[in-house]
Design a protein around this nucleic acid. Structure first.
Lengths: 224, 224, 224, 224
DNA sequence: CATGAATGAGACTTCATTCAT
DNA sequence: TATGAATGAAGTCTCATTCAT
């Protein structure tokens, strides 16, 4: 941080509050934008609403981000890259079984994605075709890194002889997680849905994925 | 239009051409609307564009559907409700194992939803919060019927002793299918994605779901 | 009537009904137009509604009246000129006191104007400025003849020494009558109004107009 | 705008010109709306025309009034509610004869309603049936308060023994006044009408109403 | 830096009128 | 003569963006 770090208790007096507010502006604007983009979608979110939610005026928003589209890209960068980097760090440092790593990653993801950030997927899926420039950006910045992370964890299981080498697994793991986020942020926000994503459900899904659905006579302790 | 038009019965007299055009209009409009809604989203699709793609003027669209929202509902009914009804008919008439039924349903779905119809999910997920009236409509017309269909097929497997009674299974089956459609109609329409949903992939996913990911010593012929 | 007068019982058979309907079309269209113009106003009445109320199609309306404006003029001609001519005939044939004539004319007017015809005033007052061509037409066709009628009746009273020669009297007589029609066809159609125009009220108003409001000691039997 | 603008206090700094313009906008918009509503009617007046007449753009109008209907209500409140309130104040403070009060109220009304404001009646009468929400609003905001005012003045005359207790008097007083406004703003705007409402005419009408039309031998000084 | 009044292109929807049948 | 499908201009209202203060 800079020497004028606002968390410093020394009475730097007049100007500190202004400075702090000014320094915090971008984050406040990104938070407001994230919440509204997720709630209403990109095109349906009005610039003025973002500004109002961040406590500034319409004009001020344009001082920080030159257009609504740039604002959205900033939101994507700020919220998803960190999440993936954190997952990669966990995977690199992990030393247990592939199954344990998979469970850890999935639970971490569920916890971290519980907030509005998980709703970005909805926005991208919904509106990327109207803003084609976003597609490559999102693929490079989010999709491929996330895929590398999952594929790596599974490959570790295959290498250790834990997992069968089945190709669609990453797709399936990602699908169930993201799909759930999508539901929560769309229909689930309007009507009451039957399922909620809690830790138990993640375990059930992993258990199902790992052991399969078929009941076979000679399985022992397959179900948790 | 021409006198030798084979679909025109001899001497059908008054208004034959007009009638024939009128009769075809609803389907033409629904097709145009489906394509544009999937490509651009509901809110971003202009009524006039739909009309133009169907080869008529703006006003004509409103002769057939009183509002853009009603047009969208008609698209959903025409493309999804019918698909689900067809699946229910298959399930009711089916007499084999639950696994076979599950495979049959999923393959049927993949084939029928291969076109733009599968993109409707994207539209709903993206914009249902901006058009709350659509939420209940979609839940009643699509989500719950589809869930009944899947749950019924799985219950048959449980009743016959084929399947373990695991609650999140329907959710998982639906997730992988719909999620794939979402990807195809969003990012997949902009950049080249690694996976394509063909019949082989559906079987692989089902195999994975049925037998599980873990490699176990005493499994014999787990993969079909 | 023509020899093919449909009321003739002789079995003129096939063709009579068609002829009758065709002959009646203009009147049916005028009736429908009158009702709707009064209810909704000229601009707010849709051509198709007029046609539907007359039991024909939109196109047929245009066979009889080349535009909505011409249709309106026909309605005015058909409904108001007759009423005024009838009043003039009454006045010409009348031989009693001026007060009796005034009462007779006002009661006749009230009875005849009870239907939708009295609503034409509302339409003209409301929309004549948007259709300036109507102004002179209406002045010549309706306003001046009606004024001649009233002024004539009052002049008779002045000539006979019954009435004081006060200029604004015709205006006042017309005002109270037409204003009441206006209220009935506007606010009165939406909410319940305190006053209703019945024969008693007409007499009260005439009494008031004739004798005045002030209570004077030496009047004998002035109030009914 | 200029530094020497007298209405601008010295050093009022930030936003003075803008502020001053903004403060004046509502009145400018109401004036423009009143003129156009009276001239063309409510439905036939385009929002953009109102804005243009007030010297602003279409969007600006919607910054001040959220819909055309609300704009109209604001016009009614500004022009009629205030007029009636003023009349009530006059009546409450008045201490002369009932006849004097009646004359004062009617003259005040004529003077104040001489402009476009009196044309609002025309708009309401013409279009209230197409905008039913306006009916109750107008009844509550204008009709009933005006009626209370007139009825109160007449009741004072009855209580003091000046007037005969005749029920339809308020209706007649209102009719002649409003009907005259209606004529002025409809036919009268297109062709030249014989009568104009000046102070003399008001007195003539009141004289007529108070003393009656009949010539009676024993009246002394009936006409003022 | 910050404001918020102002803009104007563009969206959905209506409806008088035409014209092929 | 009668129909009604089709048109397209015109209306209300929204909102991203600008700019004077």
């Amino acid at each position: 941080m800079s020497p004028s770090d606002p968390s410093s208790p020394a009475g730097d007096g007049h100007g500190a509050t202004r400075r702090r507010r000014k320094d915090a502006r971008p984050q406040e604007l990104l938070d407001a934008a994230l919440a509204l983009f997720v709630e209403k979608g990109f095109a349906a979110t009005r610039s003025e609403e973002v500004a109002a939610r961040a406590g500034v005026s319409k004009g001020t928003l344009y001082l920080y981000y030159p257009s609504k589209e740039e604002l959205f890209k900033a939101v994507v960068r700020r919220n998803l890259s960190e999440l993936i980097a954190e997952g990669s760090a966990i995977a690199d440092a992990f030393e247990g079984s592939a199954e344990s790593l998979l469970r850890l990653l999935m639970h971490t993801w569920r916890e971290r994605a519980a907030g509005a950030a998980s709703g970005i997927h909805k926005v991208v899926i919904a509106e990327v075709r109207s803003f084609p420039e976003l597609a490559q950006f999102y693929l490079d910045e989010v999709v491929l890194p996330a895929q590398r992370l999952i594929v790596g964890a599974l490959q570790r299981g295959i290498d250790r002889g834990e997992f069968r080498p089945l190709e669609p697994v990453p797709h399936l793991l990602i699908a169930q997680t993201i799909f759930h986020s999508l539901c929560e942020h769309s229909l689930g926000a309007c009507v009451s849905l039957p399922v909620t994503m809690d830790a138990t459900l993640v375990d059930l899904q992993l258990d199902l994925l790992l052991h399969g659905l078929l009941r076979r006579p000679n399985r022992a302790g397959a179900a948790k």
